[in-house]
């Protein structure tokens, strides 16, 4: 924590190298959040830059009660939500909230055109089809090793809701993948 305080003090004193290191340390986290919410690669790069400019502008307001990474992730998530809202990007609805969907019916699923792709690509396609908040939670939990509490702080959700969404997202992914591919195909 003291190390973080020292870095912040250096940045506030005008040390651009310290800020560059802070960006390097957190760019993967910010990119993960943006990747799951912003489909256009050029826009994504611009948004990531804008997020770090906001971090820079608001660094003096950071309170050391929470982790710096959580604070940065929160700015990134809010900025992406703002972008999605302004561009009116359709966020996939939560399929478990609506009427029951027959997931074993191939007609209710996207085209099965990924047979030659690796398992990672199959999974990525299915993640894309998940509702936005499910995608973010899955990414923060599995790729950025965030706890339920930290994810809740980033997304302003109760810890229990984060856990429930995560479980539903993984259940959906498993069901959708199994409805389209055999276990052997997935293991290839």
């Amino acid at each position: 924590m003291k190390e973080t305080e020292a870095v912040i003090e250096k940045i506030l004193a005008g040390d651009s190298k310290a800020f560059e290191l802070l960006v390097e340390d957190h760019q993967q986290l910010v990119n993960h959040i943006a990747y799951r919410m912003i489909p256009d690669a050029d826009d994504r790069e611009d948004i990531c830059q804008d997020i770090f400019m906001r971090v820079f502008q608001n660094l003096s307001t950071f309170r050391h009660g929470s982790k710096l990474s959580t604070w940065i992730a929160r700015i990134a998530y809010n900025r992406c939500i703002d972008y999605v809202g302004k561009r009116k990007i359709v966020v996939t609805a939560d399929p478990l909230d609506g009427p029951a969907q027959n997931i074993s019916d191939p007609a209710s699923l996207p085209d099965r055109n990924l047979e030659s792709a690796g398992t990672a690509d199959l999974l990525r396609e299915e993640i894309k089809a998940l509702p936005g908040h499910f995608r973010t939670i899955i990414t923060l939990y599995h790729l950025d090793d965030m706890s339920y509490a930290d994810i809740g702080e980033v997304m302003t959700l109760p810890e229990g809701t984060v856990k429930s969404y995560l479980f539903r997202a993984r259940r959906l992914l498993r069901e959708r993948l199994l409805a389209k591919y055999t276990q052997e195909e997935l293991l290839q």
Partner: peptide
């Protein structure tokens, strides 16, 4: 999910952002 590889940002991203700041 643990090993999903998300395309990274440009290699000079941090340098560009620090310069803009």
């Amino acid at each position: 999910l643990d090993t999903d590889r998300i395309p990274p940002l440009q290699t000079d991203f941090a340098v560009k952002v620090a310069a803009a700041a």
